[in-house]
Simulated scan of single mutants.
Amino acid sequence: MATTAAPAALTAASPPRRRARSYLHRSYPLWYYLPAAVLFLVFFVVPTFASFFFSLTRWSLFDWEFIGLKNYAQFLSEPQMIGSLRNTVVYAFLTSGAKVVLGMALGLLLTSQIRARGLLRSMVFFPVLVSTIGVGIMFTTMMHPTEGLINSALSIVGIEGPKWLANPQLALISVALVDIWKGVGLATVIYMAGITAIPVEYYEAAKVDGSSAASSFWHITLPLARPATFTVITLSLIGGLRSFDLIWAMTKGGPGFASDVLASVVYKQYQAGFYGLSTAGNVVMFIVVMAIVLPLNYFMRKAEVEQ
């Protein structure tokens, strides 16, 4: 009797065990997300909510005082606020647009059958690897109005070079040109990956139909490289809206406030010891970036789905 009861008990207990093992088997891969989730929580979620809180306070290293929205009111009433916001948007769209156009052109060139492709690819990508501060210092010296390499080279052919960084109308554009030179290599690599992923059969079929190179580019390369274009636009636009290090290394927001952007205004307030005010400025900059990038990303994804 006992002998027959034991197998029956084991049989009755086996389905729950199998279900437990099956659940553990299904949930096991989820544990791989845990390290990334902890890092995301510690380095993004917690600092983000802390920033929102401290932007509502007047704080120092040892104490804080809740003051509500006064930091935001003061930051938004800063004399250079409108100018810095305009400079931020102009800088971001100028650099982003140029990287898209030049990245596409260089991507087409460096995926074609030309000689020394490997060397040219290395030369295009090399500026991405160089320190931004180092690039800023180098070009500040090269753009010196009287002793700089650029104006000295222009004077040889009889052209009087402008005051690149000392002219309020040219300072921001000059820094943007350096930013484009430094960042176009990354855009080129993204476009190269997108172009090489296009099946060769499409171009062969177009060639058989008598399509020109320009027509193949317009009807094949451009539509099928759209994901690469969206990636370049998103990355370069976010980078341009948050840009600080190159601008600070070359102009420190000058001359006057001509090349001030939101990030440089925030840094100046932090330097002056207005920590709560600078934190509110960071939150404003975060909101500006999200307000521009999220709708743009939504419409780009929608256009990609409808393609």
Rank of each mutant, 00 (worst) to 15 (best):
W59R: 02
L61M: 08
F62I: 11
F62Q: 09
I67R: 13
I67A: 10
K70E: 15
N71L: 06
Y72K: 06
A73M: 13
F75Q: 09
L76F: 12
S84H: 01
S84T: 02
L85C: 07
T88R: 01
V90E: 03
V90W: 05
A92Q: 06
A92M: 12
A92P: 11
A92S: 12
K99Q: 10
V100L: 06
L102E: 00
G103F: 03
M104K: 00
G107R: 05
L109A: 07
L110T: 01
T111F: 02
Q113R: 14
R115S: 09
L129F: 15
V130H: 09
T132Y: 08
I133Y: 14
I133A: 15
I133G: 14
G134M: 13
G134Q: 11
V135E: 06
G136T: 13
M138A: 15
M138C: 08
F139W: 14
F139R: 04
F139V: 00
T141H: 13
M142F: 15
H144S: 14
N151F: 05
S152H: 07
L154G: 10
L154V: 10
V157C: 08
G158I: 03
G158T: 05
G158N: 05
G158W: 07
I159R: 10
G161P: 07
G161V: 05
K163P: 03
N167V: 04
A171I: 03
D179A: 12
I180F: 04
I180G: 04
G183E: 13
V184F: 08
G185D: 04
G185F: 07
G185K: 03
L186N: 02
L186K: 01
